[in-house]
Computed example of a mutant assay.
Amino acid sequence: MQTKEIKILVTRYENLEELITTDRELVLAARQIAETAYAPYSKFKVGAALILDNGQIVKGSNQENAATPAGVCAERSALFWANANFPNSAVKAIAISAVDQSGNRALHLSPCGICRQALLESEHRFKEPIRIILDSRNNIEILNDVESLLPLSFNGNSLTNGNNKF
């Protein structure tokens, strides 16, 4: 038997002023676009802003639907729009912010499993890490790549004879 330990590094910032300019701009864009979310059922408005390797910033917000899986999360909304309109541009970073039903930024925030998988696919597609910036009420957390959110991931290597990192 063999045991392996998986460590995830998260850098935590107390406020926007501690962030580099690009990260700060992404967080502000994610906060702004969260307000456009259509979330009549959950009352949880999420915004995502990503920056591509060509410098383009793309935003998306969650869009709910009464027929539950028919909606789309903010992260995938932005990611799919970017991939459709800039198919050869890699995502460098994505900031995610949310407003709860009280109008406050979410106490804690992390992408759902489907969004993690979609972001991971983009990371593998372009063979470049995507920095994840999570904007919560009390702090901002940054992860260096999507694999940090999904360490035992299912990816294209799982479908071939490729080698997984683990």
Rank of each mutant, 00 (worst) to 15 (best):
S110Y: 09
E141G: 06
I96G: 04
Y38F: 14
L107V: 06
E128G: 12
K43W: 05
K165L: 14
N104Q: 14
R24N: 15
L9Q: 12
S158T: 07
T68G: 02
E64N: 07
R125A: 10
L150E: 00
C115D: 09
G103C: 11
D23W: 08
A34T: 05
R76V: 05
L52C: 13
A90K: 07
E5G: 03
L16N: 09
F44L: 15
F44N: 11
I114Q: 14
P151H: 11
A67Y: 10
K165W: 11
D100H: 04
D23E: 15
I33V: 15
A48S: 14
V10M: 09
A82T: 03
V58G: 05
L26G: 10
N157L: 11
V99I: 15
G55T: 02
A49M: 07
A93V: 00
N54W: 03
N88K: 14
P151S: 12
N83K: 14
G55N: 14
I133M: 06
L150K: 09
K92N: 11
D53K: 15
E75R: 07
K4C: 09
I57A: 09
S97T: 01
E14A: 13
L149P: 02
K127M: 10
L149Y: 03
S97I: 00
F166R: 15
L149V: 03
A34W: 03
G156K: 12
H124F: 09
S89P: 05
G113Q: 13
I57L: 06
P129H: 02
N155P: 11
S153L: 01
T22D: 09
A34R: 07
V146Y: 02
R137E: 04
T36L: 12
E141A: 12
